[in-house]
Design a protein around this nucleic acid. Sequence first.
DNA 1: GTGGTCTAGACCACC
DNA 2: GTGGTCTAGACCACT
Lengths: 123, 123, 123, 123
Amino acid sequence: MLSLDYRDARPIYEQVRDGLRRLMVTGALAQGEKLPSVRAMASTLAINPNTIQRAYEALEAEGYLYSVPGKGSFVSENTGVDRGRQERLLHTFDQTAAELLYLGVAGDALCARIANLKGGAAQ
Amino acid sequence: MLSLDYRDARPIYEQVRDGLRRLMVTGALAQGEKLPSVRAMASTLAINPNTIQRAYEALEAEGYLYSVPGKGSFVSENTGVDRGRQERLLHTFDQTAAELLYLGVAGDALCARIANLKGGAAQ
Amino acid sequence: MLSLDYRDARPIYEQVRDGLRRLMVTGALAQGEKLPSVRAMASTLAINPNTIQRAYEALEAEGYLYSVPGKGSFVSENTGVDRGRQERLLHTFDQTAAELLYLGVAGDALCARIANLKGGAAQ
Amino acid sequence: MLSLDYRDARPIYEQVRDGLRRLMVTGALAQGEKLPSVRAMASTLAINPNTIQRAYEALEAEGYLYSVPGKGSFVSENTGVDRGRQERLLHTFDQTAAELLYLGVAGDALCARIANLKGGAAQ
DNA sequence: GTGGTCTAGACCACC
DNA sequence: GTGGTCTAGACCACT
């Protein structure tokens, strides 16, 4: 489900957070679906439960999941995501696209990539 | 020309590097143009010349500028940029676009943003 | 009449309690009006009657309603509400207003909101 | 500077977080001022540094402070606070004010309280 | 000395 | 069983 890279400069909990977010965005984890329990995922990845808990907390703060004590953690509806995050994503999008255009990538080529993402889930 | 934010988590040299790169990408710094000397820019920003030097070296490694000993540093042709960077940018582009699509932003809206970037330089 | 959110961190009985209290405060439930029976409301919301019972007991302790054995539960006169609750509300009011002022919201703007609440019932 | 209540249902880190936020809002901690180090505050309050760290992290996410690794944590300008928080505060404000009005507190009295908050820092 | 991350292990409340 | 909180202690990178 997830792969960790201990050589990566990013902390483990960020790798877990980003990995889970990607699984949701690509549809690999459906809305409303139950995520593995903190302990289960910690056991699977062979890391401390606290580290998983931290990743889950971060995603809950972003609105990507919600936790019900005693029941588990579940994927949120995508309508519940923090709006501030969307703004930050748009900023990253503009910066990245601007540099790609400068490097000679055609705007049409970028639009084509977006169309591909809409069809088959990205990555 | 550049603004530094000491509250930012990014190291200063990264802020300088990213700021200069953005000036090139947006056309504020033309290809072939001479950049301020390390000492001059250090004086302007009131920071250590070593920090500027480090930013210049990073941009030279990326292919965004080249240095001529005794003459100064100059903006490269955009064809000289490291190809690995372009690949990384495309990866970021896909990831960001995929999440924005998931959050309900229309693909057409993203294409429209790209078209806008092509007209007036971004940001 | 009431909406429950199972993703909410608040227990269900608190959601019922707060929802009913809001209906009284906004005038949707008039003073002296008879509330649905515990069993009827439990059936409507598809939850356990004990949960409704607990919400009713909490509101009775606050003074927002009174129960007549064998007849049902009724909305109290607003004069019957626990004075301690009013003090707690005033504390919350001060804390919230202070932070909003700090964040740059004008005091006049807050007073205007209050005036609006007096006209049309809030929310 | 802060007082903890172990009988309180709120977790310690929330008490620290809310207490510090109040100190900033009331001006007891000025903008730009350096906060006690994680270890120092943990020692003062006789709790684990991790708990303080968690409170600081939460406040940083809200925009109330920023941390510079190796230097310390500092009070942010109030312009940097998350806008979502302001919206949530306004909602709490409306709810609280509406109930107070229902309980017979005059709107003018509430406005007067706000005026008092503007003068002498609240609580 | 600072913040940041991670581990190990414990306890709680709720279901 | 679940998530949530707290402690103790360790290591790292940066200043």
